[in-house]
Design a protein around this nucleic acid. Structure first.
Lengths: 346, 346
DNA sequence: GGTCACGATGTGAACGTTAACATCACGACC
DNA sequence: GGTCGTGATGTTAACGTTCACATCGTGACC
């Protein structure tokens, strides 16, 4: 009695109990154990109980490798994600994690820091080695994306970025619409041209947000303001901010993400230009901090949770062999705070 | 010639080629194929080439489930992480990812949003089902941590938070030292008492940082300033900031993370109290944005990359059965920027 | 030139599960 | 009261590796 330690027996020494052990303990065949484990209706109540008791007594747990070998179904979904240290990608990964688990699957994650096409291929290989049933790709570099599209895989592959309307299997957030909304907001406030701090131009998101910015000007017969390329980080935003601060022509900026927008804010500050009185600023992402920037940042909110859930749903459909419907994009929403104001009078 | 599409044959239809298929194609036994795959020196150059050619021709890839079943080694490390939407945890996860891959292992990640002890147990169960060889726990809630310590597992479990000196298998960042450094910096600047905005007090990090803050006062024979509990988010920092802003006694605050520090900055701003002229502020984490807060934030930098690498190293040692040395903590570093200044003259 | 060691390869049996089929008991039906 | 269906269970054979051992040359050594 003194050494009773719960169900787990002979921890460490010897091999883990197998179905055969449980079967012997319960006085049934291993197949009956299997049936109990798989909730087959073909087991009498009494035997079921004996088996469950034996399972508990032995601390048995099913060997998933053997199961996978026999069924050829891993119940695992792979994800390759780049730049997990950035807000967007890490949010997508987190939401994927939740959605995958809710679906009763496991997530195999391969993170890439700066993905070349070769890296992408290697990442996919690793996932294939882990017997995933589908792969979700959250990589934004145009080149890597192209590679992903060209891959000929035995399993479905879902894209979450750089999605075109004729994409086979994809989900996405409408970046172009987000860029448009941000710019339109500024233009409608009376600003005549809006500067733009872009993300790195190999990123499709950067391109798409810029497209929205351009189209907003076009629609109003206006010429877009100056364009500065950043790299998503605050320092690059800061550099852009100091340049913009030195240009009295610019009264409004659309910055392609919040981290850079913070840098822009600081750069403007240092030049003595007040936000929003002298210059209006719009960001993108709506990071939790954005409402506490100084001033609180007007920005475009992306629903990453929705994206993750949809990506997983798409993957599961594809695994089930369902014909997939058309690509639908999640609409981002403009959230107006205090970094934007009507254009100062000339 | 027209339909040549590279090595991958009969995509989708039929089952994937096995070692036996490769062996037949190369005119050898399956065991020889296995030897080639495992880089055994016992294969003649010529045969090796024939086998590799057959592998390429058939587009063969090894079935890892069968391999795992036979070897009982998954080359997979599990991680359970809570609050992946916060900066710290997501950084740890990302660095673990890299370290695990560098070691030639795969990472199985289970993310928890708000972990109860039961959640922790369930997460560990899922990892066990995935046949991980070790588990790294990045969970900061005291209760969950206690559960983790009490678990009796057949595999090693590495703790990364709330590490005590007598911990069996753990790595960590010295939170107490970080809290001490932050507070000492302010005290040495002439502030007589330092207020503290803590994290939620179920988090061991929050407790440890507070301990450091207290000890810094004690060492100087001073009484600690007021203490306000936050929840790591900017809004809670903002609430704390407005309270502190209304208290003219307070000339310095140590905030337990940068996100809350941002909120504090904003709250102080709104009260017309200038940073650092009227109030000095120190944060914790050194998020990439911290250098671009207004003013740039003095904070304590945590080396998450080091932590991840050490955690994985520890896990691998344990897997190999090495007796593990004493726990060593990563020292955080104070980085002084412009949110701190000497105490204003009374 | 016969034995011996060793290098190169093959053979058979695990690993622990599920799938397919076989068996058996028992009640219903005519 | 015998057959037939079916509910409950058992038996055997996959799944694709690796491991342990067996086999077969071939060169070296005395």
């Amino acid at each position: 009695m003194g050494e009773q330690t719960g169900p787990v027996r002979d921890r460490g020494h010897g091999r883990a109990p197998s179905m055969a052990d449980v079967a012997a303990h319960a006085g049934v065949s291993h197949q009956t154990v299997s049936r109990v484990l798989n909730d087959s209706p073909l087991v009498k109540g009494a035997t079921r109980e004996r088996v469950t008791a034996a399972i508990a007594a032995l601390g048995y747990r099913r060997n998933s490798a053997a199961r996978l070998l026999a069924t050829n179904r891993s119940r695992r979904i792979g994800m390759v994600a780049a730049h997990l240290s950035f807000y967007g990608p890490s949010m997508i990964a987190a939401s994927m994690q939740d959605a995958v688990h809710d679906a009763g699957y496991e997530l195999a994650l391969v993170g890439l820091s700066d993905p070349t096409p070769g890296d992408l291929r290697e990442a996919v290989d690793r996932l294939l080695d882990q017997a995933v049933e589908a792969i979700v790709v959250a990589v934004a570099h145009e080149g890597a994306l192209e590679t992903a599209r060209g891959l000929d895989l035995p399993i479905p592959l879902v894209l979450t970025q750089g999605v075109g309307p004729d994409e086979a299997l994809a989900v996405g957030i409408d970046q172009e619409a987000g860029g448009y909304a941000a710019t339109a907001h500024l233009l409608d406030l009376g600003h005549r041209r809006v500067a733009h701090v872009t993300g790195p131009l190999q990123w499709v998101e950067a391109l798409q947000r810029r497209d929205g910015w351009r189209r907003a000007h076009e629609d109003r017969g206006l010429l877009p303001g100056p364009e500065i390329e950043g790299d998503w980080t605050p320092p690059s935003g800061h550099r852009a901010g100091t340049r913009i601060g030195g240009d009295p022509e610019v009264s409004a900026v659309f910055v392609a993400n919040d981290a850079m927008a913070l840098g822009v804010l600081t750069g403007l500050h240092e030049h003595g230009r007040r936000v929003p009185d002298d210059v209006s600023v719009v960001g993108f992402d709506d990071v939790p901090e954005a409402a506490y920037f100084w001033p609180p940042l007007t920005t475009v909110r992306q629903e990453f949770a929705t994206l993750g859930a949809r990506a997983v749903a798409r993957a599961l459909e594809a695994i089930a062999g369902d014909a997939t419907g058309p690509v639908t994009l999640v609409e981002p929403a403009l959230v107006v705070r205090r970094s934007t104001a009507p254009a100062p009078r000339a």
